[in-house]
Amino acid sequence: MSEVEVRDLTVEYQTSVGWLPAVAGASLDLRAGQITGLVGESGSGKSTLALSLLNAVPAPGRIAGGTIEVAGVGDLTRLGGKQLRKARGGAIGYVFQASQNSLNPLKTIGRQLLDLGRSHEVGDLRALIARAKDLANRMGLDGDRVLDSYQHELSGGMRQRVGIVFALVLNAKVLILDEPTTALDMLSQASVLDIVRKVHDENQLSTLIITHDIGAISEIADRLAVMYGGRIVEDGPLLDVLRRPTHPYTKALIGATARITGDVDGARALPGRPPDLTTVARAGCVFRDRCPFAVEVCAQTEPELETFESGRRRACHVEPSTVLTGPVLTGTTGTPAAVGEPA
């Protein structure tokens, strides 16, 4: 029962040293009716993965391998031209990163909505407007006012909601949100998350939320996938992953989150910095440089993402129990070694 099945997806970018993978052999399912959270640091490839779900990786990037099966559409990587344009926004609704800034400043929201309708050859534009108003009202916006507004007349949280209206107005069944709460303050973040959960349930969507904030996602997601260095390193039901993280990176991410409860001194920032296209390890595990559990084999063979118990997958050579009971990363701050400036 997966609405979207990503298999062995590899996305490469052309650089001065050749084609380098930003996403390397990622497999991920978006299950029908569930919210999947995809977390990772900057440069982990999560936004690239999300864009490839629209087959819209910008040049100099390309999808180099793998398939993306979307229910009712087929393999997105093989679509082109008109079919692809129809799928984008039609079957798959996408709320862009900084969607606050993805609206046209010169047109009212309503006019942009009509543009969307025309480009998707919607016959009944009145019905489209009515549906948009209805969606906006259900998200706590004043539909009439919003459609007559320019983007600068709306607050950040309101623009984010307008982004969701645009993504859903054509009855998309798959909703992808890229960093929906970044740049919003706490109160707006809480209300946007609330609304995402509500429209997800009301419209029976399959939702993917991409974020670097494991705290925000844990509030509403059903499943969690953790991405590092272009690989998915762990996934499973959210509550289970948070309680029993079996990948050292997941464990470190949870430990590095500033929380309102718990021991202030127990929290540790991740040492080192996340790899980018050029610094990611070519052989062995991509996380081994920052991993407190790394053993010899980690430098030689890359661990496969394997199911180790029902519903849970991980890509790590170290036993799950060792990671669970072992230490969180022992990074301290203030010392140069902790920052791990690559030599």
Binding site: L187, Q189, A190, I214, G215, L242, I260
Partner: peptide, 24 residues
Amino acid sequence: LLSAVPVMRGLEEPGPDRTAPTAA
């Protein structure tokens, strides 16, 4: 404000008196 802080489910339980502003 404090109610708006995301709860890390699995590790935390929401406070019993969580509340939100009634208007924007």
